[in-house]
Design a protein around this nucleic acid. Structure first.
Lengths: 214, 214
DNA sequence: TTTTGTGAATTGCTTCACAGCA
DNA sequence: TGCTGTGAAGCAATTCACAAAA
């Protein structure tokens, strides 16, 4: 068991995948699962699975494997998703709207509870989810962060606005940003940033196609 | 200069980021750029930048740096995006619709030219982009792949349908899949797969927040 | 027997540091 | 002098292989 900062980044990435797969096993009423079975479902080696869990403590039972419900709880705890948390969205264009109604966030314990834009045509629009809210101007962002204890923000604005809106988020108290704009955000090291550049992902595939010939 | 399969995966990932940043410099009329300047914009070391390019050949000019327009062309060539290519989308829910009208794909040379779903309520819907098309039933997918020479598919269906729709894509001749469903697809090794699990990305941020304390 | 947890070996990636070119 | 390209060194992650537990 290591200190969090000594855990390899790839191991943390895989932890989320383990959780996802464990939930599938749990839904199928599997009580225990071995590192080999879990690895197979995710195309990973059994040694990889065992080592990844070992970074966080002792989770398994020799001769038995891992108890599914127990492991789910402990992984959620590690990821900080054992309790639901609130997130906001900045940028209510096509992508932002899709993300507001995206059910995959709630399934993993993240509730979208506020949205912001500076376009008057979308300000005032109402959400249709479990927790209703109205699209507000960006100036209201810090208030929502405080009142709703929001720590994570989703950035879905055009590239040209991304850095300045990210600055507003950080100034408002946001601690982590999921960035969909195709820019490298410059933030202090105390802010966690994860970027999803969809164009870049397609380029990766394009390159791989070229490798095998075609 | 190495064989494509010997190039480290992280280097290929970064190649797309270099291209993105080079386009920014180009738009600002920069003629040349050094490895240090390029690295700084992307929070990478200068050595990393030079080594990454060196995997693909000799691109730079000692004492000068890299010529921006030349490098852009050569990187596009490597990624296979020097000519535009056609892509299809399977799954026309909230996310699928947002992706159909997402301008970031076209900017990187990918045209969405067909969309498929099995819900009769969306079949027949018309797109509003540069290349107009109508949402078709999944059974028509192989025909479109052939007629429009489509090699890449975007999978935006619910988790429960993901594997079977992926199978349809592969049987229809698709060579690479950008997967938005939260499942690990099982495909032959000749199919390139890239997965974007938005819930997982938020979990990463959540974990990082826990690390620094809060 | 089955399966974990883990040091040791290995593989892979990044950084260093410098020769060579402009 | 400024900057690239690249072996060598250093660091990080994965796989191996086996003792210990059920």
């Amino acid at each position: 068991m290591l200190k969090p900062e000594d855990i390899p980044t790839p191991a943390v990435r895989r932890l989320s995948l383990y959780l996802r797969q464990l939930e599938v096993f749990h839904a199928a009423d599997r009580r225990t699962v071995s590192s080999r079975q879990l690895g197979e479902a995710l195309s990973l080696s059994d040694a990889q699975v065992r080592k990844d869990f070992a970074y966080f403590g002792q989770f398994g039972h020799p001769g038995i494997g891992y108890r599914v419900p127990e492991l789910i709880q402990r992984v959620r705890r590690i990821l900080g998703t054992d309790k639901p948390s609130n997130v906001l969205i900045a940028g209510v264009g096509n992508l932002g709207r899709a993300l507001i109604s995206f059910s995959g966030f709630a399934k993993r314990g993240f509730e979208v509870v506020a949205a912001f834009d500076h376009d008057p045509r979308v300000i005032g629009m109402k959400s249709t989810g479990a927790i209703p809210f109205t699209v507000q101007p960006l100036s209201q962002l810090p208030i929502a962060v405080r009142e709703k204890s929001i720590r994570l923000g989703i950035l879905a604005v055009p590239a040209s606005a991304a850095q300045s809106v990210a600055d507003v988020m950080v100034a408002g108290g946001i601690r982590g940003i999921l960035n969909f704009a195709p820019v490298t955000l410059q933030t202090g090291s105390e802010i966690a940033v994860a970027s999803v550049d969809l164009g870049v992902r397609l380029e990766q595939l394009s390159f791989q196609l070229g490798m095998v010939g075609g």
